[in-house]
């Protein structure tokens, strides 16, 4: 009895933790920080920081949630160990789509201090207008009118009418691992970084830019042996 229980436990543990990897990208290339690149429209740009929250993962089948994980993860382009999110693969294998929140939900935003990736020491919190910063994208662009040609896009806000977290739904097949490309290019284009585009508070600008999230997240398939899954 006991030996078979332990055996089942070990097998299910092995299956339980399945990895998803978020790959910060610029266009169809993995994003390299502090490296000059050219946007599709010809604008030269150097990205210095790209960080964002994802969380409230759910696997769905025919539109119904079959498993969920309410944790939040801070994906940081400067720290590849942050790219991995552990998901429940036992039910994931039965799903036809994965859904997650880009940004932090309103309930978490009003529930006080959290630890881990939501710890306010992570620099992803607005102290003078309470709420998590869902995304920070910073860099330089020679055409930017700001000092040092530096631009800062900080998206967030949880209160209507400026609630900016977005639910992303992507089709999945098989039991993973999965990779999600997170493309910063649509956001940079929408912001028009050659103009006064800085956003550092909740409001209409953050709301408008947050709606590009649907074109930022793309699912792509990788084999488990792919380099992208080596930590």
């Amino acid at each position: 009895m006991r030996s078979s229980f332990v055996c089942c436990l070990l097998i299910s543990t092995a299956l339980h933790a399945q990895l998803a990897r978020f790959v910060p990208c610029m266009g169809d290339q993995p994003l390299r920080l502090d490296t000059p690149i050219t946007l599709p429209d010809g604008t030269p740009v150097t990205i210095t920081q790209f960080r964002f929250y994802v969380g409230h993962f759910a696997f769905c089948r025919a539109g119904k949630v079959i498993s969920r994980n309410d944790a939040f993860h801070l994906i940081d382009a400067s720290d590849s160990s942050s790219f991995f999110v552990e998901l429940d693969a036992t039910t994931a294998a039965l799903g036809d789509s994965i859904s997650f929140l880009f940004g932090v939900d309103s309930l978490t935003n009003v529930s006080g201090a959290f630890g881990g990736d939501l710890d306010p020491t992570r620099g992803m919190y607005w102290a003078w207008n309470s709420g998590y910063i869902n995304l920070k994208l910073e860099g330089t662009c020679p055409a930017s009118p700001y000092a040092s040609h530096a631009f800062e896009l900080h998206l967030g806000g949880y209160l209507p009418p400026f609630a900016s977290a977005r639910r992303i739904v992507l089709p999945v097949s098989g039991s993973g691992p999965w990779a999600v490309a997170v493309d910063a290019a649509p956001l940079l284009e929408a912001a028009d970084i050659r103009t006064k585009c800085n956003v550092m508070s909740p409001g209409e600008a953050a709301l408008r830019l947050s709606s590009t999230a649907s074109s930022m997240f793309k699912h792509f398939f990788l084999s488990p042996e792919d380099d992208a899954f080596k930590r």
Binding site: N109, V110, G112, A113, P120, Y125, A127, W128, N129, S130
Partner: peptide, 23 residues
């Protein structure tokens, strides 16, 4: 501006004309 007692100290700690610090 602050929605929860837990988060309140972040504001004076970080303000340059109050404590001028970072958490």
């Amino acid at each position: 501006a602050v929605n929860h007692l837990d988060m309140q100290p972040l504001a004076p700690i970080g303000h340059p004309a109050e404590m001028g610090e970072t958490l």
